[in-house]
């Protein structure tokens, strides 16, 4: 009960801050990591932050749309990850690297 009361004390803004922070962690991960797989994971983190926010809003407003959206995001994220990993494998086959900073043939 006491733990629930803590939940009750949480305002919606806390969720917003939390997911924004999570999002930013993911974002900075994307920016500062070079390994493509980790970048991919960081993007997942960003998406999950958004999911959290959607769920929070949804429950706060008593509106189901947000939760449904979360399911779609999860599905799409999975599909995206699958395609992404396939591309990564493709790149890896040709370059033997998963480091994105080496991929700079196209520029100018």
């Amino acid at each position: 009960m006491s733990s629930l009361s803590i939940f009750n004390q949480l305002e919606i803004s806390h969720y917003i801050y939390l997911s924004t922070v999570l999002f930013c962690i993911g974002l900075f991960g994307v920016l500062f990591r070079r390994n493509a797989i980790i970048i991919l994971m960081c993007i997942e983190l960003m998406l999950n932050a958004v999911n959290l926010l959607f769920v929070a809003f949804s429950s706060y407003m008593g509106d189901a749309d947000g939760q449904i959206f979360v399911f779609f995001i999860m599905v799409v994220a999975a599909a995206e990850a699958a395609v992404g990993l396939a591309i990564l494998v493709l790149v890896y086959r040709n370059t033997r690297k998963t480091d994105v900073s080496f991929l700079d043939n196209l520029k100018g």
Binding site: T20, I39, L40, I43, M46, F69, I73, L88
Partner: peptide, 24 residues
């Protein structure tokens, strides 16, 4: 390959931004 990876990573990234926006 490089084009695909770049497009994918940046596309996914921008999707994340888009989603955050829609959540807001």
């Amino acid at each position: 390959n490089e084009a695909a990876l770049k497009y994918f990573l940046m596309g996914a990234f921008s999707t994340g931004i888009f989603l955050l926006g829609s959540a807001f």
